[in-house]
Amino acid sequence: MSIRRIYQYPEPVLRVKAKRIEVFNDDLKELIADMAETMYDAPGIGLAAPQIGESIQLLITDIGDEREEQRYKAFINPQIILSEGSQIDEEGCLSVPELTANVKRFKKITLVYQDEEGNEHELEAEDRFAVVLQHEIDHLNGILFIDHLTPLKRNLYKKKMKKTMVAGKEPA
C-alpha cells in the first residue's frame, strides 16, 4: 500500500468523465488499498479514483462509526437509480482545498454498484452517507462540489486559487 498524490482544482484530470471498470484483479484491489490509505492520511471520508489521477469509476468511503477504527467500502461502477427528498449539508473536498460550503443533495438514494470481485449490489443510503456517495459519484463524472455553488461563491474561490498559484504557494 502507498499514499497517492491527491490532485487539486484546477487540474484537468478532475474534469474527465471516468471510464467503466471491466477488469477485476489484484491491481484493482491494490489501487483500492492505496486509495484507503490516501483517504485516511488526508484525512477524508471519501475518495474517488480521479482525485488520485485514475480516470476510472471507483470510489471509496469510510463506513466506520466513531467507535471503530478505519473501515471503508469500495464502490465500482456506481450508479444512482433512485433518489428522493433533498437536504442541505456542509461539504468540503480533498481536491478543493480551503473551502467548505452548503450543498443541496438528495436525502435518500438507491445505488447499484460492483464490489472488488465484480459482483453486483444494490444499496440504499440516506442523510450524510447519501451526501458522501453523491459527492464522490460527481467526481466520476468530472463534477466538483464547487459546481453546485452560486456563481459568486465559485468565482470568489477561483480568484483566491489563482492568487495562491501566482504567488507560488501550495494550498493548505
Rank of each mutant, 00 (worst) to 15 (best):
S55A: 11
S55H: 03
Q57C: 08
L59V: 12
I60V: 07
T61L: 04
T61Q: 10
D62M: 04
D62P: 00
D62G: 01
I63P: 13
I63W: 05
D65T: 14
D65V: 11
D65F: 05
E66S: 04
R67C: 02
Q70F: 04
Y72F: 12
K73S: 10
K73W: 08
A74N: 01
N77L: 05
Q79H: 08
I80H: 01
I80D: 09
I81F: 14
I81N: 06
I81M: 04
I81D: 03
L82R: 09
S83I: 12
S83P: 14
E84H: 08
S86D: 14
I88S: 08
D89T: 02
E90M: 07
E91H: 11
G92L: 13
G92A: 09
C93E: 12
L94G: 13
P97Y: 11
E98K: 11
E98R: 04
L99K: 09
K104M: 15
R105W: 05
F106L: 11
K107N: 08
K108V: 02
K108D: 02
T110M: 09
T110I: 12
L111P: 12
L111N: 06
Y113T: 05
Q114P: 12
Q114V: 15
D115A: 10
D115L: 11
E117P: 00
E117R: 10
E117L: 00
G118V: 00
G118P: 00
